[in-house]
């Protein structure tokens, strides 16, 4: 673990910004958890709470040239890349006003205008795609990088391994972010991943592999910053492994009988928001009042998103057949 990270000076605005995004994700996910329990939200929902530092630590190094691909646990990546939370919430409720007009749902929220290539219902679906967006950036010379977020489950998929090989062979500006939250569905990564660490596999593909404390925003930010700078400079891909845990089950409704106490420990001792707050108030970079103000602001935002989503119209029969093709 990168316990002692040498921090680059982040401005107050920047720090407040990343806190706001992490808090937005947390509030969003806690609220979806609560609303799902009421039965109002249809389908499969996989929550990102606990993993916020990964999405925000990586995406706070990205700009509009850059593209990310996400997973079935994609809300955090969407928010971190700038997708509108109101549209996301409406999408999760299956509303016409949603990011995908109600045709995608939680597992397929995307906004290509923001460089968000989609949450993805297929484990290992994203890594090949970001090889392509990275290739496009390389050919066009935009300086853009592409990031694939994937879980410990996907780290065993051929698509992921093939993509890391291809990214190295083509020397692509690609970052592979393995979010090892300990479980692929109910199966422990300590059992399913044959190597000690997912990051160890980087060596097999000729790229650096870095293990990162996924609860520590600053550690993630630093590691991602270095990898992204290398990629932008033509230095090729990097594999980052985030080690942490998720606070909720694989999906909403998961009784999590395979787990034993680590969530309580993580929430109490390791939580990324708590650690972030402790650190910035300790250094005096931000005051607790600043953070409290953000918390209050976000609570109002998400409350509004939920209310708007519930009030929004459902798609109509006319929407069923549209947008299968650009032209058919």
């Amino acid at each position: 673990m990168t316990d002692t990270v040498e921090r680059k000076a982040l401005t107050k605005e920047h720090l407040l910004g990343v806190y706001r995004v992490m808090r937005t994700i947390r509030e969003f996910e806690e609220r979806v958890h609560a609303e799902f329990a009421t039965g109002d939200i249809p389908g499969f929902v996989h929550l990102y709470a606990g993993e916020e530092a990964s999405a925000v630590g990586v995406c706070s190094n990205l700009d509009e040239r850059d593209t990310i691909a996400s997973t079935h646990r994609g809300h955090g990546h969407c928010i971190a890349k700038g997708v509108d939370t109101g549209e996301m919430m409406a999408e999760i409720y299956g509303r016409r006003t949603g990011s995908c007009h109600g045709k995608g749902g939680s597992m397929h929220i995307a906004d290509l205008s923001k460089g968000m290539l989609g949450a993805n219902g297929i484990v290992g679906g994203g890594p090949p795609l970001i090889c392509g967006t990275a290739l496009a950036a390389k050919i066009k010379g935009t300086g853009g990088v592409s990031v694939a977020f994937f879980g410990d489950g996907a780290s065993n998929q051929g698509t992921t391994l093939e993509s890391m090989n291809l990214a190295s062979v083509w020397n692509l500006p690609a970052i592979f972010v393995a979010e090892n939250n300990g479980y692929a569905e109910s199966t422990a990564s300590t059992w399913s991943v044959s190597s000690d660490n997912i990051a160890d596999r980087a060596a097999g593909f000729g790229m650096p592999g870095v293990i990162v404390d996924g609860f520590d925003f600053f550690a993630v930010h630093e590691a991602a910053s270095e990898a992204i700078a290398r990629a932008r400079g033509g230095g090729g891909p990097t594999l980052l492994e985030m080690k942490f845990t998720r606070y909720f089950g694989h999906f909403e409704g998961d009784q999590q009988t395979y787990r034993a106490g680590e969530v309580e420990h993580a929430r109490a001792e390791l939580d990324c928001l708590k650690r972030f707050a402790a650190r910035v108030t300790e250094t005096g970079e931000l005051a607790q009042a600043d953070l409290d103000a953000v918390d209050a602001e976000i609570a109002v935002l998400i409350e509004g998103d939920v209310a708007a989503a519930k009030a929004a119209p459902l798609p109509t029969e006319a929407d069923l057949l549209t947008d299968v093709y650009v032209r058919y």
């Binding site: 290539l117 890594p127 090949p128 795609l129």
Partner: peptide
């Protein structure tokens, strides 16, 4: 490309979105 159809067919698709 390497003999990695998943990776390069997927890369073609990803590049098309970009």
């Amino acid at each position: 490309t390497p003999i990695s159809e998943s990776a390069f067919i997927g890369a073609a698709i990803g590049a098309a979105t970009a």
